[in-house]
Design a protein around this nucleic acid. Sequence first.
DNA 1: CACTTAGTTTAGAACTATTATAAAGTAATT
DNA 2: AATTACTTTATAATAGTTCTAAACTAAGTG
Lengths: 140, 140
Amino acid sequence: MEKMNNKNMIFIDKLRSSGLRPTKQRVEISRFLFKRKRTFHFTVEQLKNSMNLKRSKKISTATFYNTVHALKSAGYLKEFSLENNTSYYDTNITSHHHFFDNGKVIDIKSDKITFHKLPEAPKGKKIKNVEVVIRLENNN
Amino acid sequence: MEKMNNKNMIFIDKLRSSGLRPTKQRVEISRFLFKRKRTFHFTVEQLKNSMNLKRSKKISTATFYNTVHALKSAGYLKEFSLENNTSYYDTNITSHHHFFDNGKVIDIKSDKITFHKLPEAPKGKKIKNVEVVIRLENNN
DNA sequence: CACTTAGTTTAGAACTATTATAAAGTAATT
DNA sequence: AATTACTTTATAATAGTTCTAAACTAAGTG
């Protein structure tokens, strides 16, 4: 594989701990997703289009799906759904909430929402997490 | 059309106010959805299968999709999504929350959850609604 | 009522997001 | 350097959903 320079170590580690060999394509995807400072929301199609736009040799659809799926299973990405039958992914894996504004997604830091009352889990179950979606509309 | 007896009035009204003529198929779908007392969560495929199972002359897939879509647009059904790229619908249109337990959905009455702190909407926007999902897991 | 019009049902085609397949290629191990 | 196991890719397959157009039916009209 290409030289394992320090600049890629962190991206390669995420791949390895997701059970994936750090191939050229996967390292590029991992870097594209995780090099950024701000949180990133995307669908696999959007990811593929934005990465392949600037490439002569395109990365295949299957590789994008496989890599995103493995990173998600390992906990490096969070999946969520809007009402359009498409999976969205979020590079912010900390517990947090969302504004949904006509298909646009904005993160809400966890500490911005606190509860006064929450129901108990049904018998035999426990709460894994609590996620709030605040839907927005224009105020005219 | 068939005799407009009182027993179907309420189901026919929902169709008319959704912009749909009360045809035989649609009245049956509307009754199937709204005659029940308890809340009902379903996908269009599930609805189609359970209604067509007991029928000799099947209602077509397109009719199920059209009818559900119109009822939803008129506000008689609520749509939500799990992480499997399928649209779910809920006959409970009052504001409420959900437990998600491995693909199973349980309603939580609105007054079971209250907030201590909520963020403000971004400038130019206002909050349309707030929905909470509590994900469950088995406690071993 | 007939008659006309506008909306409806249906089977099937088309489409979109996603997963599966299998042949050719590459990383890791020896 | 050779072998093995995993990976990439194009393509086929699948699932959920929407579109299409011909046959049908509800509603409005005289």
